[in-house]
Design a protein around this nucleic acid. Sequence first.
DNA 1: ATAATGCCTG
DNA 2: CAGGCATTAT
Length: 911
Amino acid sequence: MSGRGKNAREKEVTPLILHVCEDPLVMHTKRRRVDIGVKRTVGSAIFARARESLLERMNQSHCPDQDGDCSLVGRGHGHGHGGANGDGEKSNVLRKLLKRANSYEDAIMPFPGATIISQLLKSNMGKNGGSDSGFQGSGALSSGGSEVQAEDACSSSSRDRDSPSDCLSPGPPLPPPTTASSFGRPPPPSNHNSHAPSQTVPLSSFDLDRLSDEHLRAKRARVENIIRGMSHSPLVRPSAGDHGQEGNREGEGGGGGNGNGSDHRGDGGSLNASTRSDCPSSILSSPGSRGGGVSVGEVYRENKRKQRLPQQQHCFTQLVCSRQEQRQEERRQLKLQLEDMQKQLRQLQEKFYQIYDSETEEEEENVENGEGDRSGEREEDGNLSEDSIRSDGLEERHRDRGRRSHADLSELDPGLFLDRARALLREQALMDGEMEEDVESREGEERSGDGGMKRRAVAAEGGAGGGRQLAETLKQELNCAVSQVVDTVVKGFSSPKQVTGRHHGCHSSTPAAPSSSSNSSSSCPPPFGPMPPLTPDSRFGGGALALSLNGDGSPTSNYHSSNQRLHCFGDVIVPSPLDSFGRLSGVPTPNDQTEALPLVVRKSGGGGGGENVNQSIPPPPPPHHPSLHPSPLTASLGFSPPSFRHPFPLPLMGYPFQSPLGSHGGGAGYPPGPKDHHQSSPDSMDITRESVSIRTKMASLAGGHMGHYNHRQSSPSQHGPEGLSLSLIKSECGDLQDMAEISPYSSSTIQEGLSPNHLKKAKLMFFYTRYPSSNMLKMFFSDVKFNRCITSQLIKWFSNFREFYYIQMEKFARQAINEGVTAAEELTVGRDAELFRALNMHYNKANDFEVPERFLEVAQVTLREFFNAIVAGKDADPSWKKAIYKVICKLDSEVPEVFKSPNCLQELLHD
DNA sequence: ATAATGCCTG
DNA sequence: CAGGCATTAT
C-alpha cells in the first residue's frame, strides 16, 4: 500500500518518469482514484432539506460568510502553530498557576495588591534590570525612549494589531518629553549589567535624592517593563503571543547577559530621543539601528513597521493640519495602554501566584528532601527566576509554610496572608542588608545597577518602616506612576471632549478617587489599585469578598473587581476596561463600543489575515461585540471564571469550563450542561487548565484539538452528549449567533461544534452505517448546529472510520492469505476475532456498547471481499477497492432511533 | 460551484 | 483525527 501510494505521489511530482516506469502503479498518469462513487443517499432529502434551509437561514442571519470563516481555519492553522508553541511554555506555567489558583484564591485575595506588585517589581528589577534599563530613561512615560519602546512593542505586535494590549506601555505618542534630561542622559540601565553595580554605588553615595528619584523612575520603568513582559503571558492571545514572543526573545537575550536586549533598547532610546521630535519616521527606521543580528523575525517586524510607517507619518502630518486625527489615534492608544496596564497588573498578580505556586509545589515535592533544586525549578518557569530576592523571601516563607503543610495555604485567611507577606518583606529587607553582597554575586549578572540600587533602597525602607510601610510605599509609588502616566497621557491631548472625559470618568468612577486629581503623588487613589485583588475575587465571582478585603488602600473595590472580572484574562478580547467601568459606574458610554471595537477586532486577525488590522486607522469595527461581552450585569453577578472569558472562542468554553462554572450557580455565562450532571470530577481542574490552552488553540484555529479534549472527555461519565462541544475549530465557522446560543438563556442543546461525545456517538453509529449521508448525520446530530464545517467534519469522521475499517480488512485479509487460508468461507468474524477486537477497540474503546450483530456480518463480508479480491489479484488495480466499497456501502443498516437523541450516549451506555 | 469520497501525510 | 489534495458526482 504505502509503496503504491508513494509511487503515485512520485508520479504526480515527476510525470516525466512515467514512460520509463514499468511499475503498473506508476503507469497511471494520474493518481488512480479508488473512489467508491457510492451513491449519495438522497433519502429523506426533502425532509432534510427543509430542515437544512431553516438552519441555514438561521445561520445566515448571523454569519453570512461562514465560508470565509471556515477558510480562516486553514490559514489560522499555520500561524497558529507558531503562536501556540510559543505560548506553550507560558501556558504550562499558567496552567500550573491555575491549577492551584483555586486553593489559593482565598489566601491571596486578601493580599494587598500593592504588596504583590511591589514584590513583583522588585523581582523584575533584579532580573530585568539590565534589559529594563531602556525604560528607565523614560522617567516620564512620555519620554522618547519609552515611546520608542512602545513603538517597538506595537510594531512588533502589529501583526495582530488587533491586540491592543500588546502595546500597553508608555505608548501613546505623548507630548515631547518634559523630562528630556532624565531620559536623555544615558540611563544607567542602558549600560551593561557589569557596569551596573559600580554605578549604583556612586549614585547612592552621591545623592540620596537622586537615588530616590532614580528609584522612582526605575519603578516606573519596571512597571513598563513588567507590562511589556507580561504581554507574553500565556493568556495572551496566540496571535499576540507571536509578537510577544519576539519581544520576549529580545528581552531574554538581554537578560541572559549577552546584552543584546540592553543594547537594543539603549539604541532605541537614544535614537528616539534624538530623532523623535524630528520625524516619527525615524523612529520607525530605528529598528535598523537595533543591536546585533537581526533575525528573520526581526526583519519581519521591521517590515511591519515599515508598513506602518506611512500611516504614522500621515498621522503626524495631519497633526499639523488637524490635531483631531492625532488625538483620536492617541486616544485610542491611550485606551489601549490603560487596558494593558490593567491587564498587566493582573498578570503581575498572576505571576506572583505562579511563583507562589511553583514554590509550593516544590515544597510539596521536596519537603522531605530538603530544599532541593529550588533554583532549578525557578528556572524552569522562567519568569520565576526573575526575582531572586522575591524568591528568597518566598523560599523562606515556603519553608515555613511547607512544614505546616500545603493545606494551610488554602486555609490562610486574608489577614494571615497579609501578615506573612509583611514578614516576608521584612525578611527580604533583612536579607538584603545582610547578604547584599552575597545576593549580588549571585544575581549580579542579571541585575542592573538600577536593580541593585533599588534593592538597597527597599532594604532601607524595610528596615525603617517595616514591611508594611514598604509595601505601602511601593504601592503608592506604583499607583502614582500609573496614575501619572494616565494623567499625563490624558492631559497630553487637549482632551477630545468625549473621549478624554470618558476616560476621566472611568478612572474617577471610583467613588473615592475623583478623576484626574488621582495622580497627585502622595495619595493618588490608584485607578488600578484594586486590580490585584481582582483576580482572586473574580474567580470566586463574589465581588463582595474583594471589597471587604480591599480595605487596605484601594478605596474602590467592588467596582474594580467587577470590572476586572470582566477583563480578567480577557487577553483575547480585552473589552476595554474603560467600557466596563463606564457601564458599571453608570456612566453612559455610548461610544464605548465603538472605541473598544478596534480592540476587539482581533479575532480573525490572529490568523494570517490580519497583519494590518487596526493599527493606526480607527477601524470601523463590526458591531457585534455587544453580544460578545458579558453584560456588566452578568459580570457583576458572578460571571465567575474571568479567566475563561473568551470573546470569540466562547463556544468552546462551554465545554471545558462547564464544571468549574457549575459550582457557581450554573455559570451564568454558559449553558449549564444541558441535562448533564456537572462533573466535578478531579478532571475539573485539568479541564480548567486546559481551558487556558484552549485559547491558544482557538486562536490558532488549528485543527486537531479534538484530541486533547478527547482525553478528558472520553471518560464515559463525564459530559452529556452535548457535553458542550468544544466547537472549537469549527467555531470559526460559527457565527456570532453561537454566542447567543451559548449565552445564558440558551440552555438549548444546540451545539456549535462537535464534542468528543459526538465523536463517540459517531463511532458507534459506524457500527450501523459506514456511509451516512449528510442528511442522516444532521438528523442524528440534531443537537449540533450544522454548518458546512460541522458537516464536513462529521463526514470526515466517517471517512476516517472507513479508512481504518478498510485498512483493517485488508490487513486481516492478507494475513489470512499468508496464513494459508484458501477459501473465503473459512473466514469468519466473531466477537472474539482479532479483526473484531481491533475494530471494537477503535470504535468502541470503552467496550461499553454492544456491537450489533449486523456489524459482524458486514465485517465478515468485507473481509471476504478483500480476501477474494486479493486472491484474485485484483489488488493490482489501483482502484480495486472501489468495487468492495460499492458492496459495503449497500450493507448499511438503519441506525437505531436512540441515536437521534442527544442523550443517546447515556442511554446506550447505560445498558 | 459544491459536495462527497478517498488517499496521503502529519 | 484533521488537513490537503485530487477526483468524481451532482
